[in-house]
């Protein structure tokens, strides 16, 4: 198992993943990088579970699937088809079924703290990425404050790769529009953002958003990483 030092390293492994099992294997390294206890990625459709990758222990995963707990899990119910990140303590655990479910989860080593990032993909696709811990409330508040953006990034990277792997014939990554390719090309030439925006006749602000959009499409951790990926894929010619 790789202990990642940088998010980029995880992304490179993710890109090299050839199956959903590979994705699952890389989650353990990401979990250590994120310094938390468990990670769960769930891709859901209207009928419930479709695909998942997680670091939970096997007995709990088996139990969850056997009992079809996705039906009653407040994390699923409270985030389904939404898109803002949610702390598990804000969900409705008041019913007896939900309390029993939580009790059972805790017994198998699931932590009582969690944050879930719902993901809305193309064509009505919906997925959920969760981090789990048994931190104190105070430590957890600090953790989620400091890591929210990284969690959102990780959530979307995994979802993007899982979607690519699910549809065999799709080429990796989304295409770049000509303007996004222009922006990355100028950065690849070592041009500053202000110089590049001047060159393209757009504001620096707009350039930043084009670069961010290109970064997300490339599944890259930052602008430099996006440039590298675009070059490797032959999408830009420096």
């Amino acid at each position: 198992m790789t202990m990642y030092q940088r998010l980029e390293d995880f992304l490179e492994d993710l890109q090299a993943a050839r199956s959903l099992d590979d994705v699952q294997a890389h989650l353990f390294g990401l979990r250590d990088f994120l310094d938390t206890e468990h990670l769960v990625y769930h891709c859901l459709d209207a009928s419930g579970n479709k695909y998942g990758a997680m670091t939970y222990d096997a007995p709990w995963i088996r139990r969850y699937i056997e009992e079809d707990y996705a039906r009653i899990d407040p994390v699923v119910k409270g985030t389904y088809q939404r898109f803002h990140p949610v702390d598990w303590k804000q969900l409705d655990w008041s019913g007896k079924i939900q309390r029993d479910f939580l009790g059972e989860a805790l017994e198998t080593g699931v932590g009582n703290q969690g944050v879930s990032v719902p993901i809305r993909g193309p064509n009505g696709q919906f997925a959920l990425f969760s981090v789990n811990s048994s931190d104190t409330d105070e430590a957890w508040a600090t953790y989620r404050q400091e890591n929210l953006k990284t969690l959102i990034l990780a959530a979307h990277f995994i979802n993007q790769r899982a979607l690519e792997l699910e549809s065999d014939d799709a080429p990796p990554g989304k295409p770049l529009s000509p303007r996004e390719a222009d922006a990355l090309t100028l950065l690849a030439n070592g041009m500053s953002r202000s110089h590049a925006s001047e060159k393209l006749g757009i504001s620096e602000h707009t350039l930043r958003v084009y670069i961010e959009s290109a970064r997300a499409k490339m599944g890259a951790a930052n602008a430099t990483h996006a440039v590298a990926r675009a070059m490797v894929r032959g999408l830009i010619v420096v």
């Binding site: 959530a155 000509p178 303007r179 996004e180 961010e212 970064r215």
Partner: peptide, 12 residues
Amino acid sequence: TDGVAIQSPFIW
């Protein structure tokens, strides 16, 4: 938008 489909988890 200059043909750019703006897609990012940080832009709604």
